[in-house]
Design a protein around this nucleic acid. Sequence first.
DNA 1: GCCTTTTCTGGAATCGTTCCAGTAAGGGGT
DNA 2: ACCCCTTACTGGAACGATTCCAGAAAAGGC
Lengths: 162, 162
Amino acid sequence: MTTASTDDSTLLRERGLRVTGVRLGVLRALDGHQHSTADDLVRAVRADLGTVSVQAVYDCLHALTAAGLLRRMEPAGHPARYERRVGDNHHHVVCRGCGAVADVDCTVGAAPCLTPRDTHGFTVDLAEVTFWGLCPTCASEPTADPVPAAGPSGTTHRVGTP
Amino acid sequence: MTTASTDDSTLLRERGLRVTGVRLGVLRALDGHQHSTADDLVRAVRADLGTVSVQAVYDCLHALTAAGLLRRMEPAGHPARYERRVGDNHHHVVCRGCGAVADVDCTVGAAPCLTPRDTHGFTVDLAEVTFWGLCPTCASEPTADPVPAAGPSGTTHRVGTP
DNA sequence: GCCTTTTCTGGAATCGTTCCAGTAAGGGGT
DNA sequence: ACCCCTTACTGGAACGATTCCAGAAAAGGC
């Protein structure tokens, strides 16, 4: 683990960021558990370092995200999640039941439909794709539906049987 | 406008929903101003009907969304927005500056990259595409950047000059 | 090793949204 | 046309995720 920490230290310094316990802790926690929420990370870092304030973690997440070391994603109706995979073309599947997130690699390199035709004068710099569905665990549940299924409604791109 | 209201009444009844002032007011407000937030709608309906509680509007939005008369979209870092365009394949551009939303029609019918290959066991039913950028107004602003630019960070699909 | 800058602490505040219990209104059945 | 049951609306309090604030502590260039 010392190796990973040392790498992270270098990484932080390279981006002009100070090396602190909280930052190393957050990065280490994300290595073990990708797509963690801020709350997950507070708990993880506390288990690791003893005591950390909520703000320290939020500040840290902002700093790391701004530095390009972390990617932030915020599925509708769920708290934001953070991941270390940055700088590559990948998307996400989000579970409507529990909010779990998994990575989805891009099937095509060029992404034809991700170049919009008419953007109403907007200068577009980023295209984000989110798939919605159910994770294996929630799908196998006895359809007890206490939560009214989060995520967007209405037809966007129906996937599967047409 | 009486025509529109009458149509909306029929629409509501067809879906088994009662016809109420708030519901007609919300639908009418959305006709005039697509992609409104709940707050926008509270104000619009109040200007129209006099007095409405916040809950009435939220309840109404839930009912109409559940009935498939409204589509809800929630851009990361911005309050949810509602629109009447349902049941067609269209996506959205969101302004990082002010959160403004515009519709983007799908360039290709088949949406090749919206059929993920490996979904890690998730049963995917919907693919959502969001473009991020700046609206004409925010783009022409003197780069005074008080708000740290909302929306996802890190590279997803860089659009434009590579 | 000192001193400035940056980060961390703890607590209070914000924002969008939801929960609650009670009142009011829609509309099917007679 | 009326009644009654269901559903919608009111107002206020609560919620969770996140941010703001001012002061204390620590990082690291000199």
